[in-house]
Simulated scan of single mutants.
Amino acid sequence: MSVLAESRQQSRILFVKNLSYQVTGADLYELFGRYGSIRQVRTGDGPKTKGTAYVVFEEIGDAKKALDHLNGFHLQERYIVVLYHMPARGAATAKADLAAREAQLAELKRKHDIADAEK
């Protein structure tokens, strides 16, 4: 992987999953704080987010050290998974992707002489 591609994938925000439901924010501050200054820890508390957390470091380098050392770490009877947080793509990008897919579909329908179903 090129240095430029790697730097684009790195973030100072880590996403942590496969956490025990008993893990607290304080537990994560203690564990991840060994690798640098932490700005924030947010643990999931909803049905779809329980067992996950975001850990925000002050510096990207500290986040990288934590990821390198803690991915697969055994914490409270679970092996945690640590990943870089990847922000969701913006709505404008999603709309552009949808428009492109709709154009491709229309072209395929035209090419294969397929009419839209009557409503």
Results as ranks from 00 to 15, higher is better:
Thr24Trp: 02
Lys95Pro: 04
Tyr79Met: 04
Ser20Asp: 14
Glu6Trp: 13
Pro47Gly: 07
Ala103His: 11
Lys48Leu: 05
Leu98Met: 09
Ala91Gln: 13
Leu19Asn: 10
Lys64Ser: 02
Ser2Phe: 08
Tyr35Arg: 00
His69Leu: 07
Phe73Gly: 00
Thr52Pro: 02
His74Gly: 08
Ala91His: 06
Arg34Lys: 05
Ala53Gly: 07
Thr49Met: 06
Tyr79Asn: 15
Lys17Gln: 08
Thr24Gln: 08
Leu31Cys: 01
Arg42His: 02
Gln9Asp: 13
Asp27Ser: 10
Ala88Lys: 14
His69Lys: 14
Glu118Pro: 10
Leu75Pro: 02
Val23Glu: 03
Ala92Cys: 06
Leu83Asp: 10
Arg8Gly: 10
His69Thr: 04
Val3Lys: 15
Leu108His: 13
Glu102Met: 15
Tyr84Pro: 07
Phe32Met: 04
Gly44His: 05
Gln40Ser: 08
Gly90Leu: 12
Leu28Lys: 04
Ala99Trp: 05
Gly44Glu: 06
His85Val: 03
Met86Ala: 14
Tyr79Leu: 12
Lys95Val: 06
Lys119Glu: 10
Thr43Pro: 01
Lys17Tyr: 07
Asp97Thr: 13
Leu4Gln: 12
Tyr84Lys: 11
Asp97Met: 14
Lys50Cys: 09
Val55Leu: 03
Lys64Pro: 04
Arg110Gln: 15
Arg12Lys: 11
Glu77His: 05
Arg12Glu: 12
Gly36Thr: 03
Tyr84Phe: 15
Ile80Thr: 03
Asp45Lys: 11
Phe32Ile: 03
Ala91Pro: 08
Ile38Tyr: 01
Ala88Tyr: 09
Val81Lys: 11
Tyr21Thr: 10
His85Thr: 08
Leu31Tyr: 01
Ser7Cys: 09
Leu67Pro: 00
Asp27Arg: 09
Leu31His: 01
Ala103Val: 06
Pro87Tyr: 03
Pro47His: 09
Gln22Ala: 13
Arg12Val: 02
Tyr79Pro: 00
Leu108Glu: 14
Gln9Pro: 10
Phe32Asn: 02
His85Ile: 01
Glu6Phe: 12
Arg89Gln: 10
Thr49Ile: 06
Glu58Phe: 03
Leu4Gly: 11
Leu75Arg: 07
Val82Asn: 00
Tyr79Cys: 12
Thr93Ile: 14
Tyr29Gly: 04
Gln104Trp: 09
Leu70Asn: 03
Met86Leu: 14
Ala53Phe: 00
Ile80Tyr: 10
Lys17Phe: 06
Val16Glu: 03
Glu58Gly: 10
Phe57Val: 06
Lys50Asp: 04
Phe57Leu: 07
Tyr29Ile: 01
Leu19Lys: 03
Thr43Ala: 12
Ala99Ser: 14
Asp68Gln: 06
Lys64Asn: 11
Arg78Trp: 10
Ser2Asp: 15
Asp113Asn: 15
Gly44Arg: 05
Thr93Met: 15
Val16Ala: 04
Leu105Tyr: 11
